[in-house]
Nucleic acid binder design. Structure first.
Lengths: 220, 220
DNA sequence: TAATTATTCAATAGAATTATTGAATAATTA
DNA sequence: TAATTATTCAATAATTCTATTGAATAATTA
């Protein structure tokens, strides 16, 4: 094989893979599937697009081998094909956050509005948990918690938060986490907690970031 | 700002960034600029495309803030805007190599043909250098060597390799590196060295990968 | 000032991508 | 077997992306 032909093959393959990622809905799908597997309908609902359209995007991702499927009854469950797919999304996300005033401003504005502008890092979380002076809340839907969560975290899905605030210890601050830096559950939870007089921060990143650092996690 | 509007903004920005990368020529440009800055003409020559076309691709990358420019005389020098841009490319590349039989096969075929199928990792290189029983060759163009290279490496650009083989110690094996896993210089160098009876391997990755691991490097 | 050089711009035609629509498929239940 | 359900497919029009061409710009040199 000639040099040029070789290069063309390799870079075209990789550009194809990149193209499959290059769409806002498909990036959202990657972010969702990083939490837990999902059916076509669940994804369509989350993205607020038609089922046919969600299916089309999923076909694109499957064609690029970024996601894989498992059939069960007449449901098709989609999942990420590889942990490395998440790492690509993470590196894109981190580049975006660092370089684009647009994104950083958008994030900051949103959080100020929710009073959750003080966010903490995974390292800070580890340190505070070690000192046993915080409560950690996972506010994602229960299915995602079951698919994997930070060891000491309690599952309190957003829709149950208000009724369970009373049961939280008043003397310990709370750290809330959810899907990732673009997930708003944690911001809304911090807002609610602060209104009830409980000190609360959000974790900057989400559970998949914890997992991708090879930190221990629990399932079920 | 509403939740939905917020999500749309953020994911659209990131999809835009991804789209700017999603083209075989533009990925090649990223790979080249990771070695050293370049003018439009140099890039056009390397990619074997027209200057206007190269300029157009560079405009796309610049629009997405993936590269930045520095004007000098009537030359425009392009460089990567951020180390994180390389990390995105690296993660895409690693996903591609791991997941696509296509790419792996293409790489393997090419290397078998060049007798350089035995490649070594950066960790193995470090260990061998520590034991002082190898010679390390950087076979990239001199400009790229000057912009940054592995500390103990000698600069032997491909076009001077044949004339400088005689001066190499016959008793030490040689490790050759170049731009990265898709760069064929190292494969061709290994082929030439083996023909002269010198034991030689290629480094699996390239100099930018060494740098991105925050290992020490020399300049000029 | 005129000529040269490196780069960018603008217009264009062909190709690819997108969301929408409605029909087709395939697994389950009545 | 017929009806139901989740998903996929196929066709379409609107938009976006691409390489090419030739002209425009801006920095340098004659």
């Amino acid at each position: 094989m000639e040099k040029k032909e070789f290069k063309e093959k390799v870079y075209s393959e990789l550009a194809g893979l990149t193209k499959a990622l290059a769409n806002p809905y498909r990036l959202q799908i990657i972010d969702l599937l990083a939490q837990s597997s999902r059916t076509v309908e669940e994804i369509a609902t989350q993205l607020d697009v038609s089922i046919a359209n969600a299916s089309q995007h999923l076909q694109t991702l499957k064609g690029a081998q970024l996601v894989s499927i498992q059939k069960e009854g007449h449901y098709v469950h989609y999942r990420l094909a590889d942990e490395k797919v998440y790492l690509v999304w993470k590196s894109l996300r981190d580049l975006g956050i660092e370089r684009f005033a647009q994104i950083e401003r958008t994030l900051k504005d949103f959080r100020e509005q929710k009073n959750s502008f003080q966010s903490i890092s995974i390292d800070e979380l580890i340190e505070k948990v070690r000192q046993e002076n915080v409560v950690v809340l996972d506010v994602r839907p229960e299915k995602e918690y079951r698919a994997g969560h930070i060891p000491q975290a309690l599952s309190v899905p957003m829709e149950h938060l208000s009724e369970r605030i009373a049961a939280l210890p008043k003397d310990k601050p709370v750290i809330v986490y959810c899907r990732g830096p673009f997930c708003v559950f944690a911001d809304e939870a911090v807002e609610q907690l602060q209104k009830q007089g409980i000190k609360a921060w959000r974790l900057e990143e989400g559970f998949p970031d914890w997992k991708s650092r090879n930190l221990p996690f629990h399932m079920a």
